[in-house]
């Protein structure tokens, strides 16, 4: 077998394909371990590039030990599943998830607003320009205003996410609703549908898979705003922990947290994709 990296028509076999696709991971992990061993030979207390043992210890701490000393969930007598709900990563994940899910739920009104803007000319006239204006605003630049207006607790962080992502969702939905062929709307009316039946039963139902795809694309911005809010002003949450750990070089916690966050986001994305397929068997991506 010949190796032809610059041939468009090349057909690598399965084994080569698998090897190549994992190669960079292997190289990355190898380099990391090498650097880690080297640094620990020079200084056994190094915290910048933790060894596998240190990482494992960090993971164990994160999953089994509470962050605050006053929590007695760490009592060694308890079983691991009793200690887990008191653990640092559990509580951080719960705090971040709550904010994330609230802002995800707030995307439902955003979708409805976008639909109404597209379908009903008067509502469109009222909101369209305003939403376009908000869309231009850089969400992080209004963070101080949010803190002043809503305080530094939950509301301001949720508002940050909503201001950051909602205009995109509204405009996306609006464009999707407008792209539904006019024939479908006219057809609906001739068949006796009312305004609500056309807007929800025909247009919304048809664009739903694309709306979910659009929300999937916006999960990352949503997380970005969540993390920004948590890093700047928070007392719990995944990003708060990462920010705190930076102060005392807690790489043994930060690295597992980063991977954990990536995994969570992947799982949310995958389940949305799964549900989308499941709910809309008729949908064909074109």
């Amino acid at each position: 077998m010949t190796f032809k990296p610059f041939e468009i028509e090349a057909r690598p076999n399965k084994l080569t394909w698998m090897t190549l696709s994992w190669l960079l991971f292997a190289v990355g992990i190898g380099l990391y371990l090498q650097e880690s061993i080297k640094r620990h030979r020079e200084n056994p207390d190094d915290r910048v590039i933790p060894t596998v043992t240190q990482l494992a210890q960090g993971v164990q701490n994160a999953f089994l030990n509470p962050a605050e000393e006053d929590d007695d969930g760490s009592a060694a007598t308890l079983k691991w599943w009793q200690r887990l709900p008191h653990s640092m990563i559990w509580k951080d994940t719960a705090a971040s998830s709550r904010r994330f899910l609230i802002s995800l739920a707030l995307m439902i009104p955003a979708v409805l607003l976008g639909l109404h803007i597209a379908m009903f000319p008067y509502i469109g006239a009222l909101f369209m320009r305003f939403v376009l204006f908000f869309d231009k605003i850089i969400a992080l630049s209004v963070l101080p205003i949010l803190f002043i207006a809503f305080g530094i607790d939950e509301l301001s962080k949720v508002m940050l996410m909503v201001i950051g992502v909602a205009p995109t969702i509204i405009l996306d939905t609006c464009n999707l609703a407008k792209s539904v062929p006019r024939e479908q709307v006219v057809k609906g009316f001739t068949l006796g549908a009312g305004n609500a039946q056309v807007a929800y039963g025909i247009v919304l139902k048809q664009i739903m898979p694309r709306i979910i795809a659009s929300i999937r694309l916006n999960l990352k911005p949503l997380m970005l705003f969540l993390f920004a809010g948590e890093m700047i002003a928070s007392t719990d949450g995944l990003a708060y922990r990462i920010a705190i750990m930076r102060r005392h070089m807690g790489m043994d916690i930060i690295i597992p947290y980063v991977l954990w966050v990536a995994l969570l986001l992947f799982l949310v994305d995958a389940s949305l994709r799964f549900l989308n397929k499941r709910w809309h068997p008729w949908f064909k991506e074109d």
Partner: peptide, 19 residues
């Protein structure tokens, strides 16, 4: 307004794809 005495069969998009 849209005329309900009419049945409409366009060339394209003549059916609701989600039903």
């Amino acid at each position: 307004g849209i005329n309900r005495a009419c049945g409409y069969v366009p060339q394209k998009y003549s059916l609701f794809p989600d039903r």
